[in-house]
């Protein structure tokens, strides 16, 4: 049995408890960026520090990837017989930024701009070592029914 491995190092802290995405904050102007980068896209400053981003936010916009992406670059299932459309969106993390992300839902009837979302992790594919490669996604926060 293979283990689970992250799609890349330095993008998120999974498999930590309460894993988070890793961004950069500019030490000059406090601009927040994702993924990490060593200089600032806002003020051109050259000093940034790694920041753990928030885990929840509102869905700012979304689409559904309806056909298998070209591979490469895509590493997931591209077999037209078994391909499952997947949601993609931007989730607004308050006070930080809007992050582009896979979504765990793919039915337009369930997807609403403004809905509350939280960070999660999903299997992407099994690599040549038999390990399951994991990437980040956002999932709807289940609303308590009154």
């Amino acid at each position: 049995m293979g283990k689970q491995v992250p799609v890349a190092e330095g993008v998120f802290t999974w498999p930590a408890d309460e894993p988070r995405l890793l961004g950069s904050t500019c030490t000059d102007c406090a601009n927040v960026m994702f993924p990490t980068q060593s200089s600032c896209s806002k003020c051109s400053g050259q000093s940034t520090e790694v920041t753990e981003l928030g885990r929840t936010g509102e869905l700012w916009t979304w689409t559904v990837q309806g056909y298998p992406p070209k591979s490469p670059p895509y590493a997931g299932d591209v077999d037209p017989q078994t391909f499952e459309p997947f949601g993609v969106g931007y989730v607004e993390l308050p006070g930080e930024l809007r992050v582009e992300t896979r979504l765990t839902i793919n039915d337009p009837a369930q997807m609403k701009i403004g809905m509350e979302m939280e960070l999660t992790f999903v299997p992407l594919f099994t690599n040549d070592d038999g390990d399951e490669v994991v990437t980040f996604a956002f999932a709807p926060i289940e609303q308590e029914t009154p």
Binding site: V11, P72, G76, F86
Partner: peptide, 26 residues
Amino acid sequence: LRSWYGASGMALTTQFFGMKINRYMH
């Protein structure tokens, strides 16, 4: 950009166009 971005199912121009017009329609 690094390879995880495309590998994870993003980096498609078509997605951007869908997301931009979806927000705009809203």
